[in-house]
Lab assay of single mutants.
Amino acid sequence: KLLSSIEQACDICRLKKLKCSKEKPKCAKCLKNNWECRYSPKTKRSPLTRAHLTEVESRLERLE
Rank of each mutant, 00 (worst) to 15 (best):
W35D: 12
E36R: 14
K17I: 04
K1A: 11
L53Y: 04
R14S: 04
L60P: 02
K32F: 09
L2K: 09
L31D: 14
C30F: 03
Y39A: 04
K24G: 13
C30I: 04
L31F: 14
W35C: 09
E57M: 00
T49A: 01
K22C: 01
C13W: 04
C10V: 02
Q8I: 08
S58Y: 15
K16V: 00
C10S: 01
E57D: 06
I12F: 15
K24M: 13
L60D: 02
K22Q: 07
E57Y: 05
E23S: 14
L31S: 13
K19A: 09
E57V: 05
R38V: 13
K19Q: 06
R62T: 12
K16H: 00
K26W: 12
R38A: 13
S40M: 07
L15V: 12
R14N: 01
R59E: 03
A28D: 14
W35L: 14
K17V: 04
K29G: 06
K26H: 14
K32C: 09
L48Y: 07
K44N: 10
E23R: 09
I12H: 13
A28E: 11
A9C: 02
L48K: 06
P47V: 04
K44L: 14
E64A: 05
E23D: 13
K16T: 00
L18T: 03
L15H: 10
A51R: 11
L18M: 15
K1H: 07
R62P: 08
E64N: 07
I12T: 10
K32H: 12
A28M: 11
C13F: 01
K24A: 13
R62F: 11
K26P: 04
R59S: 08
R59L: 04
H52D: 03
S4M: 14
L31R: 15
C20W: 02
S46F: 01
R59Y: 03
E23N: 14
K26S: 11
S5P: 09
K32W: 07
E36N: 15
K42Q: 12
P47M: 05
R45W: 02
A28I: 10
E57W: 04
L31N: 14
K44W: 10
S46T: 10
R14F: 03
T43G: 11
C27G: 03
K32E: 06
R45Q: 07
R14V: 01
T54F: 07
E57H: 06
R59M: 07
N34V: 10
K24W: 15
K42Y: 15
E64H: 10
T43I: 15
S58M: 13
I6Y: 11
Y39V: 08
K17R: 08
K17N: 06
C20V: 01
K19H: 06
A28N: 11
K42S: 09
L60Y: 13
C20P: 01
L3R: 08
P25Y: 02
S46R: 03
R50P: 01
S4N: 08
T49I: 05
E57L: 02
R50Y: 06
P47Y: 06
N34R: 12
Y39K: 01
C10M: 05
L2P: 14
R45D: 01
T54I: 08
R38I: 15
Q8E: 03
C37P: 00
P25V: 03
A51W: 04
S58I: 15
K29T: 07
K44V: 14
K24D: 12
T43K: 06
N34P: 02
K19I: 04
K1D: 08
V56F: 00
C30Q: 00
S46W: 02
K1M: 14
E55S: 14
K22Y: 04
K22I: 00
R38K: 11
C20E: 04
N33H: 12
E36L: 12
R50I: 03
R38S: 14
P41W: 04
I6E: 10
S40V: 07
L3K: 01
C27N: 02
H52Y: 13
E61F: 12
D11G: 04
R14H: 07
L2G: 13
V56S: 02
L2E: 14
A9E: 00
A51V: 15
L15N: 11
L2T: 11
V56E: 04
K17T: 02
K44D: 05
C37D: 07
R45E: 07
P41Y: 04
L18E: 02
E57R: 06
K29N: 07
C37H: 02
D11E: 04
A9P: 03
S40N: 06
L2F: 07
R62E: 06
L48D: 01
R62W: 08
L18S: 09
T43E: 15
L31P: 03
R62S: 11
W35Q: 14
P25F: 03
S5F: 11
C30W: 05
E61A: 10
R50M: 05
R14Y: 06
C27S: 08
S5M: 12
A51F: 10
T43A: 14
P41V: 08
A9Y: 02
A9L: 00
T54M: 08
E7S: 10
P47G: 07
P25N: 07
C10Y: 05
C30S: 02
C37M: 04
L53F: 03
Q8D: 05
E55N: 12
C20M: 06
S40A: 10
N34T: 15
D11P: 02
K16P: 02
I12E: 12
V56T: 10
K19G: 15
E23M: 12
K26D: 12
L63I: 15
H52N: 07
T43N: 09
W35E: 10
L48Q: 03
E7V: 09
S21Y: 01
E7G: 10
E61T: 15
S46C: 03
S58K: 10
P25W: 02
K32D: 07
K26V: 10
C13A: 01
T43Y: 06
R50A: 01
K16N: 06
C10P: 00
E55I: 09
P25R: 05
N34K: 13
E64K: 09
P25I: 07
C37G: 07
E64W: 08
S5A: 09
L60F: 09
C20G: 04
E55Y: 15
H52L: 04
P41F: 03
H52Q: 06
R50G: 02
L48N: 02
K42H: 10
S40F: 05
V56D: 07
Q8F: 14
I6F: 13
C10N: 06
N33L: 12
E64R: 07
K19T: 07
C27T: 00
E7H: 04
R62L: 12
E7K: 08
S21I: 00
C27F: 06
E7C: 10
E57F: 07
N33F: 11
P47K: 08
E23P: 04
K32Y: 09
R38E: 15
R38D: 13
L48M: 05
R14G: 05
P47F: 01
T54P: 04
K26I: 15
E23L: 09
